[in-house]
Write a protein that binds this DNA or RNA. Structure first.
Length: 573
RNA sequence: CGGGGCGUGGCGCAGCCUGGUAGCGUAUCUGAAUGGGGUUCAGAGGGUCGGAGGUUCAAAUCCUCUCGCCCCGACCA
């Protein structure tokens, strides 16, 4: 492509509303433009990268035995009512009515549609397993879109759905997708980790997220280099500590007047104790019912764990009136002794004795509280957020913390949707069985953005060869010099003929401008055709990533570019 | 939705407090020179100051409402 004819508006200045590097660079390099909050247009350069990534995804999905379909964006409410998600999905589901006043939504995901298709068409175990995927636009009415294409409302997603006869089969399908995802992200040259994750609103029995390691990522993860355990912070397990040998504690309970002392810090300062000797009592409203969660003073609650333990749809900190109702005391003085709601204790309570707690009485705390003697709990569970000093739950070694961008998520759904929507088949004995499902997503635009997040420098984007919108750019230093123009033109034609996706920067611009644009846009190889070198029949090939420059005769330069591109495009066996 | 901030030529900003009819940089167009890391000079075009209403002789500036966008929390590919 000739640069002079391209629709490639690069911008020199950093856009004021772009926070993260990938967002800034996607705008500056002319990849995207915003239409409205969380909704973007891909310009030619950006769309080329998208298509390159989609191609990788298709190749790997097909290799893993999945077949491509294409489902609608507009979906009828009935299907969502059937699965139960018309109610449970929440406001991210964009709903509207058509002219006949029928309720519809824009698909934020396609479990309902695919399950409907498959239940209608697949009748026997002979037709299973099947894995169907699509690359399609999703709409999720995010509360707060941000970071450009990273978290937007309308976005491209690859979603695959597997259907198996039983749980073992589903595990196999899951593993195939897991492996395919590893290949996909590896081919993009990404540093990433698959980690155990919460299943959220999709549901199912377990899941893994693929997180691209980046400080700007919205997710936290822990991982263990010794045993390869990895988990999202939301999910990261904490092992149950051993029961203490003897029964410690046993001092008499003592009520203490603690006027206006509410927070853990205030309590500790006032009573001269450490947070490890204090137990926090947090009241939550779980689907409208009060529950108390006990946790050691120096720990934080992981609400997702609480939510999963209770199996509720909504969980929020209780309002003041609910607290007064169950604890007979305002926030800050709540304790478990005599409280009138179910009490759950984090594992950290095991082995604690003679601790401090709210007295359920305004301006009072109590000392020397002991679990079992002074109150009982409904259950002990892992309810707190993991911390740096916690050991790996699998092998006990040191855990590492990192941030990441969730680019993919694989779920073992089990029979959640097949049950709700009656997706059944006949087994060998002619008996009806529920299909066992899995679903597997990859954020297309988000992966591209994550790639930029990991591959950039002060001058701009540094594309890995497999995703580069163009692989090489031929830059005559001055197009008004006939010899330079001609040599560049010939080299450009030769590269194209040999399958290299090249740009000829034939603009009547100064060399500096062309270099800046080529670097910003991130083309992996640049061939500079200048007067001094050309007098000797030579040109320079510069490698964007390393800055390395090779001075080569024209024919050698052509060979070098072709070879480098082919190597970069190699697909791992 | 709660909290914070911003809307002024394409982009980045100043002007607003203390009303007097819009400016800087950059980009764009024309001409000339230049030609290996965003070159230089000369000239030109481009803004109902987010929108509506109000106060005033006079509003980008003050007041009210409204819309949009960004950042911090709950969502997730």
């Amino acid at each position: 492509m000739r640069y002079s004819e391209m629709f490639l508006p690069t911008v020199r200045e950093v856009p004021s509303d772009a926070e993260v590097i990938s967002h800034q660079l996607m705008i500056r390099s002319g990849m995207i433009r915003k239409l409205t909050s969380g909704v973007y247009t891909y310009l030619p350069l950006g769309y080329r990268v998208i298509r390159k990534f989609e191609q990788i995804v298709r190749e790997e999905m097909n290799r893993a035995g999945a077949q491509e379909v294409f489902m609608p964006t507009v979906q009828p409410a009935e299907l969502w009512q059937e699965s139960g998600r018309w109610i449970h999905y929440g406001k991210e589901l964009l709903r509207f009515r058509d002219r006949h006043d029928r309720e519809c939504c824009l698909g934020p995901t396609h479990e309902e549609v695919i399950t409907d298709l498959v239940r209608n068409e697949i009748k026997t175990y002979r037709q299973l397993p099947r894995n169907l995927y699509q690359i399609q636009t999703k709409f999720r009415d995010e509360i707060r879109p941000r970071f450009g294409v990273m978290r937007c409302r309308e976005f491209g997603m690859k979603d695959a759905y597997s259907f198996d006869v039983d749980s073992d089969g589903a595990d196999l399908s899951y593993q195939k997708m897991f492996d395919a995802y590893n290949r996909i992200f590896s081919r993009c040259g990404l540093k990433f980790r698959p980690v155990e994750a919460d299943t959220g609103s999709i549901g199912g029995s377990f899941s893994h997220e693929f997180l691209v390691v980046a400080d700007t990522g919205e997710d936290g993860m822990v991982y263990c280099e010794a045993c390869n355990y990895g988990a999202n912070l939301e999910k990261a397990e904490i092992v149950r500590p051993p029961e203490p040998a003897g029964s410690a504690g046993g001092k008499a309970v003592a009520e203490v007047h603690t006027p206006d002392v509410r927070t853990i810090e205030e309590v500790c300062a006032f009573l001269g104790v450490t947070p490890r000797e204090v137990v926090k009592t947090l009241i939550y409203s779980a689907d409208g019912n009060a529950v108390a969660v006990l946790i050691r003073g120096d720990h934080e609650v992981n609400e997702i764990k609480v939510k999963n333990l209770l199996g509720c749809d909504s969980l929020e900190m209780a309002m003041e009136d609910m607290i007064l109702d169950v604890a007979k005391s305002p926030r800050g003085f709540v304790g478990a002794v005599g409280i009138r709601c179910p009490v759950y204790a984090d594992y950290s309570l095991i082995g604690m004795a003679d601790f401090v707690m709210g007295a359920n009485k305004e301006d009072y705390h109590i000392r020397n509280v002991n679990l079992g003697r002074d109150f009982t709990v409904k259950a002990f569970a892992d309810l707190r957020a993991i911390r740096a000093e916690d050991p790996c739950p699998r092998c006990g070694k040191v855990l590492h913390f990192a941030r990441g961008i969730e680019v993919g998520h694989v779920f073992k759904l089990g029979t959640k949707y097949s049950k709700a929507m009656r997706a059944v088949y006949l087994d060998r004995s002619g008996k009806e069985q529920l299909m066992v499902m899995g679903c597997y997503g990859i954020g297309i635009g988000r992966t591209v953005a994550a790639t930029i997040e990991q591959n950039n420098d002060a001058s701009g984007i540094v594309w890995p060869m497999q995703l580069a919108p163009y692989q090489a750019i031929v830059t005559p230093v001055n197009v008004n010099d006939a010899a330079l123009a001609e040599a560049a033109e010939k080299l450009y034609a030769a590269l194209n003929a040999r399958g290299v996706e090249a740009i000829l920067d034939d603009r009547d611009e100064r060399a500096g401008v062309k270099f800046m644009d080529a670097d910003l846009v991130g083309i992996p190889l640049r061939v500079t055709v200048g007067p001094k070198r050309l007098a000797e029949g030579k040109v320079e090939v510069r490698i964007r990533r390393t800055g390395e420059v090779h001075v080569l005769a024209l024919a050698e330069a052509e060979e070098f570019v072709v070879r480098t591109v082919r190597e970069g495009m190699k697909v791992p066996g």
